[in-house]
Design a protein around this nucleic acid. Sequence first.
DNA 1: TTGAAAGCGCTAACAC
DNA 2: GTGTTAGCGCTTTCAA
Lengths: 336, 336
Amino acid sequence: MTSLKDVAALAGVSPSTVSRVINGTMHVSVATRKRVEAAIAEVNYRPNLLAQSLRLQVTKNIGLLVPEIAHPSFNLVIKYIEKSASKRGLNLLICNTENDYRREAQAIDMLLRQRINGIIFSRVSDESHVTSMSRSSNTPMVVIDRAFHNEKIPNVILDNYHAGVLAAKHLLACGCTRIATITGSFKIGLSRERYQGFRDTIEKSGLECDPALVHEGEFSFENGVAGVKEFLTKGLKFDGLWGQNDLIAAGAIATLMRNGIKVPHDVAVMGMDDVQFAAMYYPTITTIAQPYQQLCEKAVDYIDKLTNEECIDPFQVRLKPSLVVRESTQKENNLF
Amino acid sequence: MTSLKDVAALAGVSPSTVSRVINGTMHVSVATRKRVEAAIAEVNYRPNLLAQSLRLQVTKNIGLLVPEIAHPSFNLVIKYIEKSASKRGLNLLICNTENDYRREAQAIDMLLRQRINGIIFSRVSDESHVTSMSRSSNTPMVVIDRAFHNEKIPNVILDNYHAGVLAAKHLLACGCTRIATITGSFKIGLSRERYQGFRDTIEKSGLECDPALVHEGEFSFENGVAGVKEFLTKGLKFDGLWGQNDLIAAGAIATLMRNGIKVPHDVAVMGMDDVQFAAMYYPTITTIAQPYQQLCEKAVDYIDKLTNEECIDPFQVRLKPSLVVRESTQKENNLF
DNA sequence: TTGAAAGCGCTAACAC
DNA sequence: GTGTTAGCGCTTTCAA
């Protein structure tokens, strides 16, 4: 591959002059500039970013770690991180951790060897682990989507308590009086927070929050199915249901319908995240939207700021979710 | 950041010895090896891949270009390419082209500057364009998901004609006699091929393929909606429908149901791709599955082979799709 | 078995 | 305004 030296030889100038033309770092006389540009075009010269990064001690690459690439919400995270990064001329290296802390460690190590500019963690698997990796390097890091307490690593998260509040308020406004919920694992803080906001709001309204109508499990379609099956098997009645993400909600809706229970006519169901298929389901799914775009934009912004050694303030951003009303909770417009 | 030189100084050996220990390229006496290893551990040394790549003239990174990250099928492509790449110790740089040939050109240029090891194109936007870029470099490239005629760039594609055959056969086997289809743009070869296989099969069975029951558009949910609306507005009757991808099928199902037409009872509907939500829809969607995993594995394998200057054979791989039967075409097990 | 030295392609101080 | 030179961190001959 042609190098800067080749271009210089062709144009009859020194390598530094070519460098100056390319980077516009200093004034170069018009005549030589023309000659250099002609030479560059002639040999189709492409600067070697490896050499440049080595010399400058900076790269234009950032790393993104997600637990699972083909998951509708991480999918959106990837999309928006890429968008924000590319807007700033940064390139994205994607790593799938598969929720395995060993793969996570490997990925971080690889990224640090690449001397990338920053790492964004979506849903870190093991806090102490990332912490120890971060200690041995001063590469900018940001954690999104999960509260993370570390004096070096800022986080951009969602106000999950508020998400629970919004969900409960909406179901109450729909006239529901026996409200069920299917949650993610309570080992994960955000599941607990969502549930807390949800429960507090229902109880504040004067209704009780029946523990039997709470099903804890994973953030998956299958868990939505399992939750509804459990409620039905126990013969429990309910007229509203919140799944802590849209996958759960979809599983719940499908299972209710399969059992002859109509959504929203008999049970109003809502989800959370506002992933793409929420608007494509039948019925379309009412949901608590995460501001993914803002969240990702902020994360990349923080990497940028840390790179330039600007200070991060606030150190933990907590974004607000919002309600998106669709068919699955609109009892008045009965679909069936 | 600590360099090889620092480690060498600490261990009291020369840089070359440290290099030899790390890479295992030559025999090093046990005593010095121990000392070097201790030094490496002590300072938490991480080799600089930038320097190494510059020296060795190879990187361990590959690039993947997709037209849209947050699309259920490209999502699967990203997932499986990452999987195959990471199995081979390769890292993945993702670029979103947004179907814009200018962004595509920019992305290719950036990747070539990074001196990445290979580029995988999913659905190239403009053939001649990629071709010209490829001419000026000898970086391994592979095109997937779209037939591409270039003597330097192999492709891994799907037998789209056969997909159409399978879809038609299945709907015929379901007892459908008036079969509609909603296709992607006929400007794209694969839409035409799918339709051709579909049509040939229907006609071979003795039925006619009514041109009024063909709706051409995009590979989107909205096009599924639009297609069914068109058929219904025209007062056309049909008892089977194939959407050329699962998004179209979902849009069609939702629209039929909204109009009181039951799926699969009144109309059997099927899609294509077998994206994740196909198994989560209500009803679950019968579909023609693309072997994404195989396709991606092959693509990465080809990059690997080209890197090692092995020969590629066959130059164009055409994989077979397969039928996945779910509820949306099972008339006998009426869901409603 | 180990070290010295050159060089991958680039940039930036320093000269002129 | 332009050239010379050193060096980013690594590997690899070549010598010892």
